[in-house]
Design a protein around this nucleic acid. Sequence first.
DNA 1: CGCCGATGTAAATATTTTTAACATGAAATG
DNA 2: CATTTCATGTTAAAAATATTTACATCGGCG
Lengths: 216, 216
Amino acid sequence: MKWNQDDGPPPRGYHHGNLKETLIRAALDLIARKGPSGVTFAEAARFAGVSPAAPYRHFRDRDELLANVALRGFGLFEAALARAWDDGQPEPLAAFERMGRAYLEFARTEPAYYSAMFEAGVPLDDNQELRAAGEGAFGVIRTAAERLVAQLPPQGRPPALMVALHVWAMAHGIASLFGRGDAGRRKVPMSPDELLEAGVLVYLRGLGLPSDPAVT
Amino acid sequence: MKWNQDDGPPPRGYHHGNLKETLIRAALDLIARKGPSGVTFAEAARFAGVSPAAPYRHFRDRDELLANVALRGFGLFEAALARAWDDGQPEPLAAFERMGRAYLEFARTEPAYYSAMFEAGVPLDDNQELRAAGEGAFGVIRTAAERLVAQLPPQGRPPALMVALHVWAMAHGIASLFGRGDAGRRKVPMSPDELLEAGVLVYLRGLGLPSDPAVT
DNA sequence: CGCCGATGTAAATATTTTTAACATGAAATG
DNA sequence: CATTTCATGTTAAAAATATTTACATCGGCG
């Protein structure tokens, strides 16, 4: 009689073989179910089927585990934004709005990553790699803002960095306050997508965009 | 500042006399030093000089303690915003900008309250009182937005609720991403105050404000 | 006075955190 | 091929936390 096979984790011997990965998965699961505060080494170890001491071979403490989750999240986030921006194709304004929707979609479909990235209180200072990953993601927004600003007449052109910060702040504010449909969030009579698109359009109009005369 | 929040440490007997208050203070202190995840009953009890079981007489669990902190925070926050708005005196636009600065000032000077209110993951659903307090604070922004929108010509007038949500999102985004000078936050070449003021001005210009002809 | 509810303590148990000593296996080394 | 090494897990144990239960103190109220 063979008693392993088929379901559950593949039968493992003394070594897990992929524990670091599995612990990050466990942390994501725990964040999704109980928030960043609910992540404990003990429960992550239980999830992975290893002893409570095993996680210490991969992470110094709970914060380092969360930092790794955030790091991975920033990578996925940057990729999602870059894919949506698509180098401004076919037209910067449309691509910009598409990127905004991608921002909120990430926050909605990956709330655990988003929470680890922005709400878990992971300090950026003592983690150069994490800081770089965050700036990489912001770089996508910044590049897009530069392309948008370049469409404005040179005299009244605002700093692209400022525009990028404003848009990031608005997107993050909407995602953070209204973006996760799950429990505990505020209800408003517009979808986050609509709210962000309208907000960005008003903001860009305030900058003088779209300068395209076809628009009202 | 340990034992009581009152004058001096009066040698207390069997009963603390003001434990609930002191535990909330302790929670604020812990949030400020270690984030919302760092709040534990045991340490709050130690802070107050009582036994580890004492907090259970006042709060069902850690979340209820944090919810009380957030509740108190929303009260202070609403008062600060209302004081800055000052019923739109002497002029709505100036009062609106003043309220924006008050928003960021609260996030900067009371990061522990702000964190409990917006980042601790306290569920709004099962706490009607907390939800009401949050809506009370938002009500100040909403009322101010209504006054601002009323200055616009009736035809192109946007929904005041939407304007309030946009401004709230921008203010929260800036406060959350750049607003706390303490460790772990992102550095940008503008102060949060400048960033928010510029962002709101651009946004309002996009709405058609200021309609005052004296402005460019 | 004597009870009674609110508030705090003590003690006990379960869980978590964290370290230290030991075990396993796979890859490198000779 | 034998052995050594090292990353990766396990056990065991100490300290801290969480949480409940039974008991203690105090103030107020009949």
